[in-house]
Design a protein around this nucleic acid. Structure first.
Lengths: 254, 254
DNA sequence: TATTGACATTGACGCAACGTAAGGGTTTAT
DNA sequence: ATAAACCCTTACGTTGCGTCAATGTCAATA
């Protein structure tokens, strides 16, 4: 029995374009070409197509499928195991995503006015994450590898009150920092108050607070231009000022 | 404070290409263009970018994001709800996929020699599914909407013995059908035996067997060219012959 | 001041797996 | 003979950018 593209495609329930494509990328060549240039497929090709479709249903990409069907000695089991892992990873990410979307929805339906600052929540979250990532070994050793994921969840897991509290804290911190910067003394009362507010703000995102970590973060605000840009936005030099204040606050300096 | 692409990109933790792309598709235009053609962004644009990135993190596509950020009156909550549904659907499919991959792996690690026929399992499965789909109202009403999903799982849920049994049954059925077709009488002993084997084979895939459904499937083998091609592969006319035999077997004819 | 080096710009291709015409021959049925 | 139903190749569109390539601009240094 011989098949043209159309017949084959109807048998397999796929489009003829797909069959030509499979020819094009070389995973399913026709048995022969007719005198008028038509693709002609035989039983062997039908079998192979079914094999291809089987793996396709399992979500393998065509490159992997090619390896399996072109090399009979290929270790399909291993390929499937790897595929399985990728799928698991995908599911984890999807679950996280869904959870975040749900949190966002309930936040919004909780009628919190979505001010600009609140829109920043995710972004600030990212800052904190990057923070943790960069701060490196010490923090990671303490919080484990899952800290990033956990941290990712944290802002969105907050209750409405917690959320309002952290927003309020942040505003107060920024204003205090601004005044302190104008005053000019990182060891002064205002600057130390700012450092304290900063600590309280941080503990909303961290499970464990340590003075070392706090100092490390403050240093990073100076080292990483992203943070520097963020803190220096209104008044250049603020990041450095904050670092000095925090170093004093944590007892790391003077 | 003003930002060039590079500065903005570093602040937001994305690439400058992305920023140009967002300009290109019109979801984030620069505040102005410098005399030398540079894109210059201001505070408003920073805020907007952060909004964009927030929704991006939630997995919304840029088209949806555009709707949200360009039209302040747009119902974000509804968009998020729809997005949530899409994600749920995705997860369901992903779970099914994972389950299928797992079943396939255990099948393979169960050291069943993966002959061509076994590779067809998924495909045959598909045949049965299509079958049910096409057969339409009656069967659906009986099995409910989930029957397709359930059926999808069934082949792969089989124990090794069941699997071998169904494979054996199928072989016997096909051989009997072939002989019966040669004999030529759909009411004859061989043909009726084939119809019986066909029934037994079907019951591996169906929860409930009814003569009506059996007859319907047999009729479909003739009506749907995909099935016809499958059954007529070796001997044209076989599909029709089988239908006649089954119609007699189920008492729907003669 | 001439030259780097780090920035900026606009194209334009590449990716994955096809869908969807466009433009033009071939086979089959009437 | 003619239309319907096939077949072919070529090539653009999809999504969200990554990655050159060719070229212009700006700030700092030798």
């Amino acid at each position: 029995m011989e098949y043209t593209v159309q017949k084959l495609s109807k048998m397999a329930g796929i489009s003829s374009r797909t069959i030509r494509y499979y020819d094009e990328i070389g995973i399913l060549k026709p048995a022969r070409i007719s005198s008028s240039g038509y693709r002609i497929y035989g039983q062997k090709e039908v079998d192979r197509l079914q094999q291809i479709l089987f793996y396709r249903e399992l979500g393998l990409n065509l490159e992997n499928i090619r390896e399996i069907v072109t090399n009979p000695a290929f270790d399909e089991t291993e390929a499937l195991h790897e595929h399985h892992e990728r799928l698991q990873e995908k599911r984890k990410q999807l679950d996280l995503l869904i959870s975040n979307v749900e949190k966002t929805i309930s936040l919004k339906e909780g009628r919190i006015t979505m001010s600009d600052k609140e829109k920043f929540a995710g972004f600030k979250q990212k800052l904190v994450d990057d923070n943790e990532k960069k701060y490196g070994e010490e923090v990671r050793a303490k919080y484990g590898n899952e800290s990033v994921d956990k941290s990712d969840q944290k802002v969105l897991n907050m209750t409405q009150e917690q959320y309002e509290e952290v927003t309020r804290l942040e505003t107060e911190f920024k204003e205090t920092l601004k005044s302190a910067f104008k005053a000019g003394d990182p060891a002064g009362e205002l600057a130390q108050k700012a450092a304290d507010l900063h600590r309280r703000w941080l503990t909303f995102f961290w499970d464990n607070y340590t003075e070392e970590a706090h100092a490390g973060v403050a240093q990073m605000y100076v080292d990483d231009e992203r943070f520097t840009a963020y803190y220096d936005r209104d008044q250049p030099g603020t990041a450095e000022f904050l670092r000095d204040a925090v170093l004093i606050y944590t007892g790391m300096k003077k």
